[in-house]
Structure formats: structure tokens, C-alpha cells
Write a protein that binds this DNA or RNA. Structure first.
Lengths: 236, 236
DNA sequence: ACAAAAGTGTTCGCTTTACACCCATGT
DNA sequence: ACATGGGTGTAAAGCGAACACTTTTGT
């Protein structure tokens, strides 16, 4: 069975979110044609390793990151030349992390793994720009029909965080009252007794996402679904 | 670069539709552990071949079929043992054909490629049952937000065909008037001057899907979206 | 004449949208 | 006191759901 000479790799695009900014985790290449350019974390799959494990291993090894949510995104193998060294097919995964992970990374002085604001990514090696493009589309789409936004927030968060997250990622302004009403109507959040105030302004009550309740409702045929008419386009 | 010993294959799950029945294309295995059992068409990717080309080639070689619609479904590579012979990762594709293809195949006396009604599939080799499962979910989901049903019908079709197609694939009864109203409101069908009657009953006007118009509308932000409350579950 | 499928409008209720003022805190 | 963000209700419009009879053909 030596008729085939194709290598299989996994790449991960991991999103983080903090203070109304969406971030992407990138790695600086150390060797090869693309030395010193940035790319998504990833690498070759081992013979006895499942794809999911491979991605998680690479994320740990290259960036010390473990994700809060992970799903397969797409397999890139139509461009035979996407890796100049050899024929490499890449199974891309899509991950989300809590803000804690973001801060941890910022503290490290490891220069070869870094969070970049989504709106100012450097030029990426290989076809990784295409992966990023596909990932942001998926993320935007999923926000509408899966309670995935919570995976980018701390376990307890003020409602406005969720609202800003949607606005940032979708690039739209939303009606605060309607958004809140809609999310609360799903009955998948529980309010805590805690409040938090950031600088000035009235302190905000903290909420917690209840995944158990969500799964239960899901089984009864409940659908998480948000349609959001944009008020106006956002600036940046 | 001989550190990796994983093979990469493509598999295709192709759906056909005719007379209120959904079909899946299967191939009878000729050799190996799974000799004489049925599985999805597919095979190993060649070194210089894109994934899409590989699927289309396999479909042509193994079943003489060319598809009307093709998209990547999912990459199966978490079960390291999914192929008992070696580590094989499979990129599964999802295809749709016109009824013409279905009839052509039925005429052939080639016994190793056959259309099976979706509701009475034989036991499948490898993990192909999982692929089928994922594919039907995708097909059902897509019917709601992409004008994909037309790819399973002849270019000109009576409205009732579309209606039955939705009912068959979703396994629900629909309200004829509401369904028709909704589809027509999209303004992506053009009516022809032809009529067709099948046996008794009033002849039906034939319609034609206009992909150009659809693409144009899409660019203007139009969304194909159908919500369909089921009237009752269907029998089979 | 009857059976079979095609074709067609209107009403009701719910969901989505639009919209503006008061509240609690920090400075 | 003022600036900043948090919190809340209501009315109008639009969309989805329910529902039954007439038309045209084959037998």
C-alpha cells in the first residue's frame, strides 16, 4: 500500500473574545519556506491518533492552549499545491476559548504563539487565509442557531457582554431590548446574585449559561434561533 | 517524509429521487474483508488529484454516474480502525442527481452499482452507515435554507413534485397552499407553457428553476428560507 | 358519474420590529 | 452634577398557520 504519497495534517483556527474584540490564535513558523511568517496552529496527524486528538495535541504543543469548544470545519485538499513542499491535505478545525486562555497567553513571553485581533491579521502562510474566511462565516452562521457565544465568555457574564459579542462578530448593531428579550425567552440562562461594574455605570447582573437545561430543551424539540435585523452597520 | 502511514480516501453519498422515493447509490464490494457487502462508492485519492476530482472519478468509474450537485460533507478520521486493513481517513462528499441518472442506472445490468430506497438500505461496510446518517441530516437541513431540491428533479417539473420531494425527505406532511405560496414568493421559478398529467387528475403546469435569478437575488441579500410546520408525521 | 390530482384566498395569532426613558454607579 | 452603561414595556407590522372548495382530466 505504498501507492499514495499524500500527507494528512490538521489545522486549528481558534477564536477568543475579550472586551468587544475577536481574536485569532496564530503561530510563527520556525523553519521552511514560510519561516517567520504567521499561520494557524497545526501539524501532521500521527498514525494511531484520531483527528480530534491530533488537533488538541498540536494546540497544546504549539500554544499551550486547550479549547472550550471544537468542531470540524472543512477539509482543504482541492488545491494540490497548497503546501509547496508536498501534497498535504488539511482537516481544519474550529475552536473557541474562554477569555482566561486569552489572558494567560498574553502573559507568556513565548513569541511564537500570539493572539491577533481578527480585523488586523497578518498575511498568512499556505492557504490559511481561506481557512480563516470559512471559519468566520461558520462562526457568524452558528451564532444564529446554536448557543455557541457562551463558549467565548467567562462562565458568569453580564448580559451586555453577550450583546457586544454578537455585535462584534456579526458586525451589526442590535436592538438591546429585543436581543435581551429573545435570549431570555429561551430560558437557558440563569441569573446569579452577583453584580459587576466595569468603571462607571450601573453594575450589571451576572448570568450563567445552563448547558444541561439547553440539552433537555433540545430533546423536546426546542430550537435556539435568533434572527437579528441589523440597525446599522458598525464602524470598524 | 515517510513518517506518516495514513491513506486518504474519498467516499460519496449520492441521493436520487423519483416518484416520492429517495434513493442512495451503493456499490457491491468485490474483494477484501467486506467482499459482497454494500458500501458507498469511493476510493483512494491520487497524488496529483484534487479531492473533488477524485470523488467524481470514482463515481464515474464505479457507477458511471455524474452528479448534478456536489459538496463536501465531513471527514471521517476519528475512528482509527474504521478500515480494518489500515489507517484510512475518508473525506465524504454529498451529491445529488437528476432522475435521468436514476433510470439509466436501472437499465444497466451491472450488478455492482445499484440504487437502494433510502428506507431499506442493506447493512453497510466500514462506518458508512454513519456517513449516510450525517448526509440525510445535511440534506434535510439544507432543504430549509438552500434551493437544493431542484437538483433532485428534472429541469421542468410540476409543482407537486417539489412538494412531494419535501414531504418524502423531511418525513412530514405539508400544507400545499402555504408551501406553494412560500416557494413562489421567492420568485426563483419560472412557469413554462407546458402541462403534464400523470394518469388521472388535472394536468399540472410545469415549472423551471432559474439559478441565474437565484444568484442575482442572493447577491442582494435575499435568503431562501422555509419554515415548515408539519401537519402530521408521515407513515413510512 | 366518479375518482384523482391541481389550483387557489382569507383570517387569526404570534413573532419581530421599532422606539425612549429611568436607574445605579464612578468621577 | 454629570457621564456611563444597565435595565425595562408597548404598539404596529409582517409572517406563519390553519383551513375547503372548484377545476380539469382519466376511467
Amino acid at each position: 500500500m505504498d501507492f499514495q504519497n499524500i500527507k494528512i495534517a490538521v489545522d486549528a483556527i481558534v477564536f477568543g473574545y475579550e472586551k468587544s474584540e475577536l481574536y485569532v490564535l496564530l503561530i510563527k513558523q520556525k523553519y521552511g519556506v514560510f519561516k517567520d511568517s504567521w499561520c494557524l496552529p497545526g501539524g501532521f496527524v500521527k498514525d494511531e491518533e484520531s483527528l480530534t486528538i491530533a488537533v488538541q495535541r498540536e494546540l497544546r504543543e504549539e500554544a499551550g492552549v486547550s479549547v472550550n469548544y471544537l468542531e470540524q470545519l472543512y477539509t482543504f485538499g482541492d488545491d494540490v499545491q497548497r503546501d509547496p513542499r508536498a501534497r498535504v491535505i488539511s482537516v481544519a478545525y474550529f475552536g473557541l476559548v474562554n477569555p482566561e486562555t486569552l489572558s494567560l497567553q498574553a502573559d507568556t513571553d513565548a513569541q511564537d504563539a500570539q493572539w491577533f485581533p481578527f480585523h488586523s491579521l497578518p498575511v498568512l502562510a499556505y492557504d490559511h487565509a481561506a481557512i480563516v474566511q470559512k471559519a468566520i462565516e461558520r462562526l457568524q452562521a452558528k451564532l444564529h442557531y446554536q448557543p455557541i457565544g457562551f463558549d467565548l465568555l467567562k462562565p458568569e457574564f453580564p448580559f451586555s457582554d453577550l450583546e457586544h459579542l454578537y455585535q462584534t462578530i456579526l458586525g451589526k448593531k442590535l436592538d438591546r431590548r429585543n436581543f435581551r428579550k429573545k435570549i431570555l425567552s429561551f430560558d437557558i440562562l440563569e441569573e446569579t446574585d452577583e453584580f459587576r461594574s466595569i468603571g462607571s455605570g450601573r453594575p450589571a447582573r451576572l448570568y450563567r449559561f445552563n448547558p444541561t437545561k439547553y440539552k433537555a430543551l433540545q430533546k423536546e424539540g426546542f430550537l435556539f434561533e435568533i434572527k437579528l435585523k441589523e440597525k446599522e452597520k458598525m464602524d470598524k
